[in-house]
Design a protein around this nucleic acid. Sequence first.
DNA 1: CTGTTAGCGCTTTCAA
DNA 2: TTGAAAGCGCTAACAG
Lengths: 335, 335
Amino acid sequence: MTIKDIARECGCGLGTVSRVLNNHPDVSDQMRERVLAVVDKYGFVSNQSAKMLRSQDNKTIAILMKGTSSILLNSLVERIQKRMEHLPYTTNVVVLDEYDNEAKQAYMVCQKHRPLGLIFAGGNPDSYKEDFANIQTPCVIITNQANDVQNNRLSSVSTDDIAAAQCMAEHLVANGHTNIGVIGGDLASSELSQRRYNGFLSVMQKHGLSFNKETLYAVAKYSLSDGAAAAEQLIKANPDMTAIFTMADVMAIGAIRKLSDMGYTVPKDISVTGFDGLDIADYMCPRLTTIRQLLNELAERGLDALLDNIERNKPCSHQLVPFEFIAGESVYKRN
Amino acid sequence: MTIKDIARECGCGLGTVSRVLNNHPDVSDQMRERVLAVVDKYGFVSNQSAKMLRSQDNKTIAILMKGTSSILLNSLVERIQKRMEHLPYTTNVVVLDEYDNEAKQAYMVCQKHRPLGLIFAGGNPDSYKEDFANIQTPCVIITNQANDVQNNRLSSVSTDDIAAAQCMAEHLVANGHTNIGVIGGDLASSELSQRRYNGFLSVMQKHGLSFNKETLYAVAKYSLSDGAAAAEQLIKANPDMTAIFTMADVMAIGAIRKLSDMGYTVPKDISVTGFDGLDIADYMCPRLTTIRQLLNELAERGLDALLDNIERNKPCSHQLVPFEFIAGESVYKRN
DNA sequence: CTGTTAGCGCTTTCAA
DNA sequence: TTGAAAGCGCTAACAG
């Protein structure tokens, strides 16, 4: 079933069918109706490949997502898609392996599918700075900053990680915690973790509190199991620690479970804070005290930045989105 | 950059470049090397649209996923993708809205992208039986049964829901529970919920226990918040209830949180069981007693069934995959 | 307003 | 082993 078949059945030329299908104005109402009727009758949908091949303008935005296991990214992508529904673009989700070089993959996706724009959900621009330079297609990184990547087609929208980490650290200090452990990503490779760490550290210093990175910083992947393992490591090395600052809700959940298993009560013996503000954080026992990343805001602004660049050739921007502090039940007030 | 450019730079014809790119044997070694060098030099990737348009055989398998919010489906899709990496197929994830008619959408995807096969992650074949009949492309539904759908290109692979529900119900009864509430999907529209309900009910009947569906069955979406609301409704209507059987871990998590808020201790006052066996279930406090769906097994068998049908024209099959009972901490042993 | 026609980039005959 | 050439289904420019 091709537009040729439709045209034959309608007794008109291919061009007319194409025009109707693409909502061009110069078709008579009766002709339009006749074509639409036949299209409907067969549930005809035109072949995307042919369409894209011919009209280079393919109206597709590719979403590159690193892994499907991150609850945060899933929610983010869902919201992006939801916003996209009202726009004349098609999305194409490409799931990358966690260890792929997303810039290289993006370059290939561009060659293969020629998308109009690219959205990186949760990418890590720091690791692949040079590779990003090759990408000519407008793109936006959401949930990470990319200020210092040399690519004038690249925008970024992220939560203000430093301020958020500061906010959480202040909360811990205000509640009487001075001996605080941190569970975060590898600082050498993740600027995201670095920003959160710097925010945390600045508050400690401001209050004249010491932080021994050797013993109090535990590296973990953003996962439940790594959070659990890191918590065990921290508490064993620091028996006097009263709180753990984690860089992700999943880490916090893992940590809380492990601490419980070791006989500690959260938050009475040890306070644990999250980061991200996943829906499920509010269903934990205790409810997680965490930082909510405003996913709707991130999705909206990211999309806007991308489309501004594509449609109106506006310069790229690097935006910070505010966050929300969620006072849960996982921080204990010490006197 | 097209194969024409490559051909020019290599001083050969288009056909030769195409042959090299597609690993056809009839190219001289030196020519192959020369072409490969140029392809490598520019990082050339051929245009997918043109390729697909020309060679109808496009080696793409579309994965239709309903929503991105289900942790279970995300894990499932991730595993399918992982298995697919070793195969000569490309996957194309299409995310559908929760209320889309997946059969109609699938038909459109087929028209648009002409995939070789279709994988439904978590679809609900019951609601759209007639629409499924239109799909000519080989497909498989994973995590749901489709025995009675009239489509001889449709396979299905799912957990043995009836047996799993029976197993869980037996566990509750063995632990002394007789007044058990159920939180599940709408029985009229979801055969999946129906199967789990039937499994549960058969055990109750076997033990001569009564079950008043009017008061003890609470309808909920497969979400945290609906689980919480349903739990509240059940406990209010049935003060003597000692256990709740839920049809999803997220429902159970929502229920436990709500019961805690209402002053009940889980499992001491009320036992709550899950279903699915999400990773996070094992990090809850208390750990969820649940049924683990073997996602790797589901992904593997589903893919095998689909590829057997595509590549070897084997007849479609409807398979049941075993499950695993996870003895958590959310069921209390009554005397 | 409508039909005809020239390719989009690629694969795959068919000749050489 | 290779190059030339025919189209895959569609859009858009052109002519009527």
